[in-house]
Computed example of a mutant assay.
Amino acid sequence: MASATTFYDFTVKDKKGGELPLADYKGKVVLVVNTASKCGFTPQYAGLEKLYKDITAKYPNDFTILGFPCNQFGGQEPGTNDDIQSFCQVNYGVTFPILGKTDVNGDKAEPVFEWMKAEKPGLLGMKRVKWNFEKFLIGRDGKVKERWASTTKPESLEGPILAELEKKA
């Protein structure tokens, strides 16, 4: 989608494999995370859920986290979409949306990830997603505001997210 200029211009797969227009989130601040159930960073689900609950308590209609399960890093997300949903709820009580399994790199990469990587390259200008639990912060205007590595703990993101929420679109 070469004409895309914002996050909201894309459509992705929901947890049932259906179409989910990201325009549904227009005007919200969105934290995008590529997730996996069998990764050393998987316990970040707990921190992401706490972050989600804390921020949506203050800004109930203005923030969401979107989890994009990905099996491209060490085969650490081998399950079906249903397996992934169940794992997230049973083990971490996840209430934010976990979408359909997604490729974030390579020929079959989801176009929204290609766009986000181009908008906010990683360390040394690297365009690819390096590992599970990389995070992208999307502002109300649909632009990529920040990008954080897998090692960045969710609790450290509250400040930047709140700062973005306090801006007007």
Results as ranks from 00 to 15, higher is better:
Arg140Pro: 02
Gly139Ser: 14
Gly142Gln: 04
Phe113Pro: 05
Leu99Met: 05
Val104Leu: 07
Val112Pro: 06
Leu99Trp: 00
Ile138Asp: 03
Lys117Val: 00
Lys145Val: 15
Arg147Phe: 09
Val90Met: 12
Phe113Tyr: 08
Val104Trp: 02
Pro97His: 05
Val104Gln: 00
Gly122Ser: 11
Glu110Gln: 09
Glu119His: 03
Gly142Pro: 03
Thr95Lys: 10
Ile138Cys: 01
Asp83Ala: 07
Val104Glu: 00
Gly100Val: 05
Phe113Leu: 06
Thr152Phe: 13
Gly142Glu: 02
Glu146Met: 01
Ile98His: 05
Thr152Ser: 13
Lys153Met: 04
Glu114Ser: 04
Glu146Ala: 01
Lys120Thr: 06
Gly139Glu: 09
Tyr92Ile: 08
Glu110Ala: 06
Glu110Trp: 02
Lys153Phe: 01
Thr95Ala: 12
Lys143Ser: 07
Ser86Gln: 10
Gly139Phe: 14
Asp107Ser: 15
Glu114Thr: 05
Ile84Arg: 03
Tyr92Cys: 07
Asn132Ala: 06
Gly142Asp: 02
Asp103Tyr: 08
Thr95Ile: 11
Gln85Pro: 11
Gly93Val: 10
Ser150Gln: 13
Phe87Glu: 11
Lys101Leu: 05
Glu114Tyr: 00
Lys145Tyr: 01
Pro111Arg: 11
Asn105Ala: 09
Val104Tyr: 02
Asp141Tyr: 14
Val90Ile: 15
Lys101Pro: 03
Ile138Trp: 00
Asn132Leu: 07
Pro154Met: 12
Glu146Thr: 00
Gly142Thr: 03
Phe113Ser: 04
Glu146Lys: 02
Gly142Ser: 07
Glu155Arg: 01
Glu146Leu: 01
Gly93Leu: 12
Asn91Lys: 14
Glu110Tyr: 04
Lys108Leu: 15
Asp103Arg: 03
Glu155Leu: 07
Phe96Ile: 07
Phe113Cys: 07
Lys153Tyr: 00
Ser150Val: 02
Thr95Ser: 13
Asp141Glu: 13
Gly106His: 05
Ile98Lys: 04
Lys117Gln: 11
Asp103Lys: 07
Asp107Cys: 10
Glu119Cys: 10
Cys88Phe: 11
Tyr92Arg: 05
Trp131Val: 00
Gly142Trp: 00
Ala149Phe: 02
Asp141Cys: 13
Lys117Tyr: 13
Trp148Met: 06
Lys120Ala: 08
Phe87Trp: 14
Arg128Ala: 10
Lys145Asp: 07
Arg128Gln: 12
Arg140Gly: 09
Gly139Ala: 15
Lys143Asp: 03
Thr95Cys: 08
Lys143Ala: 12
Gly125His: 09
Lys143Gln: 14
Asn132Pro: 13
Pro154Asp: 03
Ile138Gly: 00
Phe96Met: 04
Phe113Gly: 06
Ala109Arg: 04
Gly106Ile: 06
Gly139Cys: 13
Tyr92Val: 06
Lys153Cys: 04
Trp148Asp: 01
Lys127Pro: 03
Asn91Leu: 12
Lys127Val: 01
Asn132Arg: 05
Ile84Thr: 09
Lys127Cys: 03
Phe133Leu: 05
Trp148Tyr: 08
Asp107Gly: 14
Asp83Asn: 15
Gly125Lys: 12
Lys130Tyr: 03
Ala109Trp: 04
Asp107Gln: 13
Trp148Val: 08
Thr102Met: 04
Ala118Gln: 12
